[in-house]
Design a protein around this nucleic acid. Structure first.
Lengths: 133, 133
DNA sequence: TTTGACCTTCACATAAATGTGAGGGCCTGA
DNA sequence: TCAGGCCCTCACATTTATGTGAAGGTCAAA
């Protein structure tokens, strides 16, 4: 598929897809006329990139972890340098920290919302929203 | 405490602490000479801000969710506009999405690392690292 | 053959989080 | 009283992920 379709299917701008390519996060082929040609698999890949980016990881890190997230593996264990291994271990830890932080905060918001709803229900047992004046 | 100590204890730059203040994420007092004066509680608060920021939330959103994360509550249910309630519900959802994305990716890295370690162990049952030459 | 919807590259613009430095005030200890 | 270390504000610089637009090529359909 071409860039327009991929953009639409992933909710991304074309500009950004070209940027991801420049950052070596995706590597589309080219058709005879120079147009980028994407595989079906790129849809998932782009969603994954968007998610990680939105979760605060910079492209530099994403580039490093992406290759080992493929099923089937696109990076093989022989290619794995000790350096790379350390990076992965380190990122695994960072991700866990991030997850913990987000989880704590999400749950706190959840608690808050639940309490609010509890109070709303107690004040207005009819279940309809809106406190009126 | 003054800005230097807070910076040190939170691993943040002074510049950034002033920035958080400008963004209305923290509100230190001022001592008679104009120096910012921080409470003990600001340490935790700053760590929380750093965590959320590192997880991809913009200061605008952090400003909105912070007040309802306090224990004891600093925002009371009477103050809560329906508008604000929607924001919180929405952010609760976003956080969950982020958490899921990060968890999936972290676990994939975890799997990979485990597999690698499995292969290392099989190749070198002595348990010592380093393949040597 | 021309129009319109795609695509290309290049380049400049923006917002957000940060760094850096200048110019200057406060305060403590020698 | 001066030096050194902290603080202040202001302002400009940088990086990263993005937007936007210009100038132009490709291709299908009218």
């Amino acid at each position: 598929m071409r860039i327009g379709e991929l953009a639409e299917r992933t909710g991304t701008s074309r500009r950004l897809l070209r940027y991801y390519e420049e950052q070596r996060l995706i590597t589309p082929g080219r058709s005879y006329n120079g147009y980028r040609e994407y595989e079906e698999a790129h849809v998932g890949r782009v969603m994954q990139i968007k998610g990680l980016l939105g979760s605060g990881l910079p492209t530099r890190i994403i580039r490093q972890i992406l290759p080992c997230l493929d099923k089937p593996r696109s990076i093989y264990f022989d290619d794995l340098t000790p350096e790379m291994l350390r990076v992965l271990e380190c990122e695994h830890g960072h991700l866990t920290q991030r997850i913990d932080c987000l989880t704590r905060n999400r749950d706190a918001i959840g608690d808050y919302l639940e309490t609010v709803r509890g109070m709303r229900a107690a004040a207005d047992p009819s279940g309809r929203a809106g406190a009126g004046s």
